[in-house]
Design a protein around this nucleic acid. Structure first.
Lengths: 341, 341
DNA sequence: GCGACAATTTAAAACGGTTTGGTAAAATTC
DNA sequence: GAATTTTACCAAACCGTTTTAAATTGTCGC
């Protein structure tokens, strides 16, 4: 049913009906109520594409999806979708070819000029992130999931990576560990840098020298976790503890330790960052995994909120949110074994 | 830039330009070429919402996202997005509350009448799936990822679950296993039933009695894999082999075996179904995991193709695709240990 | 009972394309 | 070379809303 027919049945003009449904003030309460009731009864729904054309809004927010190692993605999306489900806003997913770093900026550019989205979410930013500069230049509203040091105002939601890893590392030091390895995320991403800093600061605070041979960077995969852990554990003296960037990395570390006959929670301690997945929980690993924890799904839901705020005019300079991270100690962390000499 | 201005610059009418860009036959090759070139040069792009209003197409396909245990989701989405990226079609993600089974049908209903999507993808169907009946009734094009026995024509793409599990089970029998447990997916889903059938047929073909105490159903999580495997392994005599529904399930089984001091690949064999994840590979597990394998990402990409075919008018009765599944043997499968009496 | 002002409602003009129903000019047929 | 068809293009109507600008109705003070 079209607006015109619907209005005619009510004996009103399309204008008034449109306004009544959109909650404009210049329509009497009585009329508004009647319109709302009849709309429900007759099942009238405005044509979404006509609305979008007339208002100039796209009614969707864009999310770019990388190809590799994105197991966080569905949790974040889940949170986003959950929150946006109640609004009349869709989520538009664009795929990105990770192999072509130049393609990325083009993709964002296309997304912005295509007019298919009202806002964009930027993931895993770098300190000087081209995408942020671009979106700002194009005037496209966007929310950064993470942060950037770039000299361009941007709204962001981030977790306290630095604090989380500082606490995790400090805790390991408190337990008596001195050789602590870290398997971090991709080189160059802000969150990796923040984690690096948390790690180094914790060491420095206790007068432990930073050893570059104990730090690795890469995608969050089981495979890399294994390979790095393995190579670290082959050093002499070997590290007695690991700080891991993700659950998958931790799986790899567990595997590496086991393959070398080392017992986790006794000979090797591990703390990982857990984004909270329904299908793989730190509590259920053997031994259960100590973790810094922050829900990716919750971040997705909150991101949706913040984007809505941006779209309703809140200046991006105001939208900054830093979430604290829990540290949950379980069996995978313990004092180091007595030193053999 | 608007069509009108652009056309004016070219000295053509909007009609001709529109047709040239959409590839209609009644415009000369020379003109078409000129229009295309100028469009690229001047950066003219039709307003997507105007196009959608005028054509009545939504320009998007809908995907419903469940809340729990959906680590396949991002891979499937990735494939979908990859293929659809080159078309002018978006992916619209709707969240579903798994806890409310009635909400699901309402969600599909809303999605169909909202006019926001031209087609829908239905996941994990049941033999008599309400969603399929609904979408058919509403005349909304849809593709089922999986299959249903329902008496309603529907396009589908599925993998040969039955054959895959039959082969996996047969292989375990060939190795000498007689007590083979199976940890399957959610009760009632078609793919679970197919896998059940493959399992039972393999047993029957070799005269092995089906033992309901060796079969479990549930979400694909590490936790359930662990719990079921644990309870099976506590039976006497205990199973010597497992068929697992997913990689996460396999992780749980590995954990259970380990927690009971049993060595995988010697005392217990495992074959799992692997949807191919970039962050967790069967080859890298210790011992490496034998698996039936079929790429979820490829299925997503192909699903996009099939949906496009449906939208261009191919009748859904014609769109059926059954993919074979590879069986890849690795270290987790071996003959059972000699029987102790 | 009338002017002033506010509260409602409306007709008509966007929004930016596609598509229908033509019309000249060029090509073909006889 | 006239009649017919084909080719290449165009003007105008249409898709279904929102929004601007104007008209109508209602309320109030005097």
């Amino acid at each position: 049913m079209k607006l015109r027919e619907f209005a005619q049945q009510l004996g009103l003009s399309p204008t008034t009906v449109s306004r009544a449904l959109s909650g404009y003030p210049e329509v009497s309460e009585k009329t508004r109520k009647r319109v709302a009731e009849e709309a429900a009864r007759l099942g009238y729904r405005p044509n979404i594409n006509a609305v979008r054309l007339a208002t100039g809004r796209a009614g969707a927010i864009g999310v770019v999806m990388g190809r590799s190692g994105e197991f966080h993605f569905s949790e974040f999306m889940g949170g986003l979708a959950e929150r946006l489900g109640t609004e009349d806003i869709d989520i538009l997913v664009s795929p990105m070819d990770d192999k072509d770093p130049k393609g990325e900026i083009q993709l964002y550019s296309r997304l912005a000029v295509s007019g298919r989205v009202d806002a964009v979410i930027v993931h895993s930013p770098e300190p000087n992130d081209e995408r942020i500069a671009l979106l700002h230049k194009l005037g496209m509203p966007f929310l950064v999931h993470g942060r950037s040091d770039i000299d361009v105002p941007h709204a962001w939601l981030d977790i306290d990576n630095e604090g989380a890893i500082r606490r995790a590392t400090s805790h390991l030091i408190d337990l008596g560990h001195r050789r602590i390895a870290m398997i971090n995320g991709r080189q160059g991403r802000t969150f990796s840098l923040h984690r690096d800093k948390g790690y180094r600061d914790a060491l420095q605070a206790r007068g432990i020298a930073f050893d570059p041979r104990l730090v690795a960077h890469g995608n969050f995969t089981d495979e890399l976790g294994f390979r790095f852990a393995r190579s670290f554990l082959e050093q002499t003296p070997r590290p007695t503890a690991f700080v891991a960037g993700s659950m998958m990395t931790a799986l790899g570390i567990y595997r590496a330790a086991r393959s070398m006959g080392l017992e986790i929670g006794r000979e090797v301690s591990v703390i990982a960052h857990d984004d909270v997945f329904p299908y793989l929980t730190a509590d259920n690993m053997v031994p259960s995994l100590s973790a810094t924890r922050s829900s990716m799904r919750a971040a997705g839901a909150r991101s949706a909120d913040l984007v809505l705020q941006l779209l309703s005019g809140r200046p991006s300079e105001e939208v900054h949110e830093l979430w604290p991270v829990e540290l949950i100690l379980r069996e995978s962390t313990a004092p180091p074994p007595p030193e053999r000499s």
